[in-house]
Nucleic acid binder design. Structure first.
Lengths: 227, 227
DNA sequence: AGTGATAACTTATCAGTGTTATGTTATCTG
DNA sequence: CAGATAACATAACACTGATAAGTTATCACT
């Protein structure tokens, strides 16, 4: 049973260890490997610690030198991908004067982005974290970034008199819920009779805006005491 | 090393095997065991095949006599729980004449139900199936049931002149997206600055309704060719 | 150039998972 | 009471995330 090469765990390409100060180089290569697997397969399940380690050319526990656990690693991958989301949302509304049009275009861009990367979106926005609340928040800069930008857009709408004055937070959360609800339901229940996605997103956001604009006089519990 | 009882896999309560025609009795006990673990722990991860088998007092592969795989088992558990959802939605709108009020109360009841059973809701509405589209649809009677009821409510709203005439499907899907977006985002991102849940749900649904009511004259691509 | 310190890893292993092929036993039928 | 078979159990496979403990290459310093 003599075989030339040792049997068992055949690592395809064995990485050379980094120099002494350059330990963080591996972090980049791990992220690239994990991102590659996720992009190739489109499934989080395929991104196992072992698969990532093999693709990066290192041993399995080497991953844990740079990431606390698997969730942190995958979240880091998704965070990098979703940096594009921020840029896309800006691009979608660049050069637009009407703040309502800004809101609409950003909303459509949001849904479109989610449907282009359904697995990334699912990981970040449809999966509860295994960590505590505090660390889950720390691992999730995407949500806060998206929300801050949306908040600014809502405020400009309020300044233009489109939305009623008062706390912008519930309005922004409401608009976010609409866009998220649409994207996430399409991802999970694709067999439902969804109309054309972009026109439907347009419809929903219009619906939300028009609803909001009439809201001043209605019985709005969260704003009742303001006026 | 003589010990009285055999070491190793100590099954707490060994079930007596069912009689010859009564093989399906085990199915009920498996469902109860799985539902119990899910209710106790609140985590799908705790509902492992082995844990369920031990709780039911049978061996691990016995599960596979009644369920194709783990997903089917857990979906069966959730389907039973969500039968209550249907009843709750009916109760919430019982005795109401105004179809809009029916819509609002059902929407609030929907979100409330989701937040009372976040893990069940997550499994059914926030997790993509491992199966093919066809079998995923077959495993998911909840969505279709909920949607059919919502569709009926939307139609009654259309008859009352609250919503514009035409295809009810996109309107119902839109309303569902709103309620789902709210519930699912709260479940996954509880650290966001959510206002009081029920009043917020009320706000959102009002917002959706008021938007819809003004829609007839606006540029609505999905209805443009009707008039 | 040689030596010790240590950053950057690897080896080996643990405890668990879903799933399946195969073996066994209790019950029912004739 | 013998044979058929429904209703299980045993054992094992191929994974998974994670960790304790051991190793090796590189660096600073003499």
């Amino acid at each position: 049973m003599q075989i030339g090469k040792p049997a068992g765990d055949i690592t395809v390409h064995r990485r050379k260890r980094a120099a002494k100060g350059q330990g963080t180089l591996l972090r980049r290569e791990i992220l690239d490997a994990a991102a590659g697997i996720l992009a190739d397969t489109g499934s989080e399940d395929a991104v196992s610690i072992r698969a990532v380690a093999e693709r990066a050319g290192v041993s399995t526990p080497a991953i844990y030198m740079h990431f606390q656990d698997k969730e942190s690693m995958i979240m880091a991958v998704c965070t990098e991908v979703f940096d594009d989301l921020d840029r896309r949302l800006q691009d979608a509304s660049a050069g637009l004067d009407d703040p309502v049009e800004v809101l609409r275009q950003q909303g459509i861009a949001y849904v479109r982005f989610a449907l282009e990367r359904p697995e990334h979106y699912r990981i970040v926005f449809m999966q509860r974290s295994m960590h505590s609340r505090a660390t889950a928040l720390a691992l999730d800069p995407i949500s806060t970034t998206v929300f801050q930008h949306l908040l600014a857009t809502v405020k400009s709408c309020q300044d233009a008199g489109i939305f009623p004055e008062g706390d912008s937070v519930p309005i922004a959360l409401g608009l976010w819920s609409v866009a998220h609800g649409l994207a996430s339901l399409i991802i999970v229940k694709p067999y439902m009779p969804w109309p054309d996605v972009e026109e439907f997103a347009d419809l929903m956001l219009k619906m939300a805006r028009l609803g909001m604009s009439v809201f001043d006089g209605a019985s709005d519990p969260s704003h009742k005491s303001h006026k």
